[in-house]
């Protein structure tokens, strides 16, 4: 019977596909899990071969990241906590400014036709395409000249620059989802355009603003290329600090693993908040607009 042979074949291929999907899941999620496990290991357990799955949890990595306990006085830990604070400050302020600018620009691009709009949108998109090192050749000198090198202010400027284009495109998408009649009715009733924007349209895209902020925060938080070259000592973000965390005994893996987990946690939180808008955010609002 062809039917039964086909069914057997379908059965087999279904199982093969399922096994492949399982293997991919391990490849995809295994490393993150491994990082979390490793961050709780002592230095000796970290290098054990074969790797230990059962071990005494050891928090020295986390202690050095947060600058508490025994690690407080060890030279290598100095600055990791400062870096964490730098990262928090820079990402938060940078995100706020980028979302503010992006909301304004996105609204105008959604509601008005004006000369050069297409060029503007492309110009904005280019921030997603630019290789960081290319503009860095220039930023490096410019930041030095303007006294922005190795400062929080300089990093905030970078965080805004990295995200303003993304924020504009995503916010435009959310504004496109609000019917134009909302403003038209307000204007017919004698309210100003500004009033309509502030009091009617903005509240309707609250969720969009939150999602945009989530994306901007993640990208600002993870940003490495700019920060690694434009900062040297005082204003290192956590990713930069991790990349330079080598002491007298080589790379400080306990610290790196713990710092890696600390870097991931806010990402996890924001990632959960934006999960419905992933398609939009990851394609610069080109796809997945609702």
């Amino acid at each position: 019977m062809t039917a039964t042979r086909n069914q057997a074949y379908a059965h087999l291929s279904r199982w093969i596909l399922l096994v492949l999907l399982g293997l991919y899941t391990i490849y995809n999620l295994g490393p993150i899990l491994w990082l979390m496990i490793s961050s709780l290991k002592s230095r000796a357990d970290l290098f054990a071969m074969p790797p230990k799955l059962v071990f005494e949890p050891d928090f020295s990595g986390y202690q050095s990241v947060f600058g508490v306990g025994a690690a407080r006085d060890s030279a290598s830990s100095v600055g990791v906590f400062d870096s964490l604070m730098t990262s928090v400050f820079v990402s938060t302020v940078g995100t706020t400014v980028a979302v503010f600018l992006g909301t304004l620009a996105g609204y105008v691009c959604s509601r008005f036709e004006f000369r050069g709009k297409g060029d503007f949108m492309f110009f904005v998109l280019s921030t997603r395409m630019l290789p960081p090192v290319a503009v860095l050749v220039f930023y490096h000198m410019m930041f030095a000249r303007l006294g922005l090198a190795d400062t929080w202010l300089g990093l905030v400027l970078i965080a805004v620059f990295v995200n303003v284009g993304l924020a504009t495109w995503i916010m435009k998408g959310f504004f496109d989802g609000v019917p134009k009649e909302v403003e038209q009715i307000a204007i017919v009733n004698g309210y100003s355009r500004i009033y309509a924007f502030l009091r009617l349209v903005l509240p309707m895209v609250k969720g969009g603003i939150a999602a945009t902020a989530g994306f901007c925060f993640i990208f600002a938080w993870n940003e490495f290329a700019f920060a690694s070259i434009l900062t040297t000592t005082r204003a290192k973000t956590l990713p930069v600090k991790i990349s330079t965390a080598s002491g007298a005994t080589g790379i400080e893996w306990t610290q790196i693993c713990a710092a890696g987990v600390v870097l991931i946690i806010p990402v996890l939180v924001f990632f959960y908040l934006i999960r419905r808008h992933l398609l939009m955010g990851m394609t610069f609002g080109v796809l997945g607009r609702r």
């Binding site: 490393p31 993150i32 490793s38 970290l46 990349s243 790196i256 693993c257 890696g260």
Partner: peptide, 26 residues
Amino acid sequence: TALMLPMMLSPVVAGFLWRYMLNSEW
């Protein structure tokens, strides 16, 4: 949703994590 996670990580974390996992000795 879980599978989407790696792309949201910092490339630096990804790099060091794999450097750690790819160490030839341990």
